[in-house]
Measured scan of single mutants.
Amino acid sequence: RALPCPAHVVFRYQAGREDELTITEGEWLEVIEEGDADEWVKARNQHGEVGFVPERYLNFPD
């Protein structure tokens, strides 16, 4: 997929490290980079905060 792209959060995730982003179910993010580890992506939330989130917690519109 082309980046950046929108993504809808389907599961809540609490950041466990400083470089991760806490996300809430129902929130929209902008995915800006593929992650440095499998199944992680770097995203920006509506407040401009950036961090890594688990890709499987997101839904990408067609």
Rank of each mutant, 00 (worst) to 15 (best):
K42E: 04
G16D: 07
D62A: 13
E55D: 11
A37S: 15
P61Q: 14
V31Q: 00
K42D: 03
W40C: 08
V53C: 07
Q46W: 07
A43H: 03
W40D: 14
E20T: 06
G51K: 05
D19K: 11
V50Q: 10
E39C: 10
V53Y: 04
F52R: 11
I32L: 11
V10T: 09
E55Q: 09
Q46L: 11
E25W: 05
T24E: 15
E27D: 11
Y57L: 12
A37I: 12
W40F: 09
Q46V: 10
G35P: 05
E34H: 11
R44H: 02
L58E: 00
R56I: 07
V31L: 05
W40H: 13
A43M: 04
E55A: 12
P61G: 14
L21F: 03
E30R: 04
E39A: 12
F60G: 04
V53F: 01
A37G: 11
W40K: 11
A43Q: 01
N45S: 03
E25Y: 15
Q46D: 08
D38G: 13
V9T: 04
R44D: 00
C5E: 03
F11N: 14
Q14P: 03
A37V: 14
D36Y: 09
E55T: 13
Q14R: 09
A2S: 15
G35T: 14
A43W: 01
G16V: 15
V31A: 05
E34T: 11
A43Y: 01
E25D: 12
H8S: 04
V53L: 03
T24Q: 14
P4D: 04
N59T: 13
A7W: 00
W28Y: 10
T22Y: 01
L3W: 04
A15I: 02
A7S: 03
W28V: 15
N45Y: 05
P6Y: 07
E18A: 07
D19I: 10
C5Y: 08
F11W: 11
R12I: 01
D38L: 13
E34R: 12
L3I: 11
A2T: 15
V31I: 12
R44S: 07
Y57V: 15
A37H: 13
F52M: 12
Y13C: 04
E20G: 08
V9N: 05
V9M: 00
R12H: 08
Q14H: 11
V50G: 03
G16W: 07
R17W: 06
E49R: 11
T24D: 15
F11E: 15
R17P: 01
F11L: 11
Q14D: 13
Y13L: 03
Y57C: 15
L58S: 03
N45R: 00
I32E: 04
P4E: 06
N59A: 14
E34A: 13
F60V: 09
P54D: 04
V53H: 02
V31K: 01
Q14W: 04
N59R: 14
E27M: 03
P54E: 04
A37L: 12
E27L: 00
C5K: 04
H47N: 12
E18C: 11
E34Y: 11
V50E: 13
I32K: 00
W28R: 14
A37P: 10
A37C: 15
I23K: 02
G51S: 01
R56E: 14
E39P: 08
A15W: 03
V41T: 03
E34N: 12
H47C: 11
D62Y: 09
N45M: 01
C5D: 00
V53I: 12
V31E: 01
G48W: 05
E39V: 08
R1G: 07
C5T: 04
V31D: 00
E39Y: 07
G51Q: 00
G48M: 06
E55M: 14
E33S: 14
A15H: 01
T22V: 01
P54Q: 10
G51L: 07
H47W: 08
E39W: 07
Q46P: 06
R12L: 07
E49M: 08
I23H: 00
A43E: 01
P54H: 12
P54T: 01
Y13G: 05
Y57D: 09
F11A: 15
E33Y: 03
R1N: 13
E27S: 00
V31G: 01
P4N: 08
E18L: 07
W28E: 11
E34P: 10
G48A: 05
F60D: 02
T24W: 07
H8C: 07
P6K: 08
W28A: 13
L29N: 03
E33W: 03
T24K: 14
D62Q: 07
E25Q: 07
D38V: 11
A43T: 05
T22R: 04
E39R: 13
P54R: 13
I32P: 02
F11G: 15
T24F: 07
F52S: 11
E18V: 09
V9L: 01
Q14S: 10
E39M: 15
E25S: 15
G26F: 01
F60A: 04
L58D: 02
A37T: 13
P6D: 05
R56Y: 09
D38I: 11
E39K: 13
H8M: 07
P4M: 07
F11P: 02
E20C: 10
G48I: 02
P61D: 13
P6F: 06
A7E: 02
C5M: 03
L29H: 03
D19L: 11
E33Q: 14
G35W: 06
D38A: 14
G48V: 02
